[in-house]
């Protein structure tokens, strides 16, 4: 009769195998969690970078648009939804809206700059 035990891993081999399997799973899990959280941190940093850039660019906007969110002859842009802000600015850039101050300002802004401004103004709370 064929002794198949020779084909089986030794007790030690089994243990090793399981340790390997378990440790690999843990490692993968840790890696996954670590990766996910670092990605979250990176995303958060990236977002804060955009807010900071948007805040710098906003210097040009707040000469006319009150940062308090009050509107008086000029509409408020504080706390606007990001997609609303972006679509309005692109409409100015494409001259589908025709306020000359705004078409001039918008035409000097890149897509990234418009996005940064949108994220910044969405983050500001009206006072």
């Amino acid at each position: 009769m064929l002794d198949i035990t020779v084909l089986l891993p030794s007790y030690m081999r089994w243990l090793e195998y399981w340790v390997f399997l378990v440790s690999r799973t843990i490692f993968a899990a840790v890696l996954l969690i670590g990766f996910a959280s670092s990605k979250a941190v990176a995303n958060k940093d990236r977002n804060e970078e955009k807010i900071a850039f948007g805040e710098y660019l906003s210097g040009e906007c707040v000469t006319c648009h009150l940062i308090s969110g009050t509107s008086k002859g000029i509409p408020s842009i504080v706390g606007l939804e990001i997609k609303t802000f972006v679509s309005v600015m692109h409409a100015y850039k494409a001259r589908k809206l025709d306020n000359k101050v705004m078409t001039t300002i918008a035409s000097a802004l890149s897509d990234e700059e418009i996005e940064a401004l949108a994220i910044y103004f969405a983050s500001v709370k009206p006072r």
């Binding site: 707040v62 000469t63 006319c64 648009h65 009150l66 940062i67 308090s68 009050t70 509107s71 008086k72 002859g73 000029i74 306020n99 101050v101």
Partner: peptide, 14 residues
């Protein structure tokens, strides 16, 4: 004209 009034409020706050 309304825009200029809005600008005055904005720039003086700025």
């Amino acid at each position: 004209y309304m825009e200029s009034e809005g600008w005055y409020a904005g720039i003086t706050a700025d």
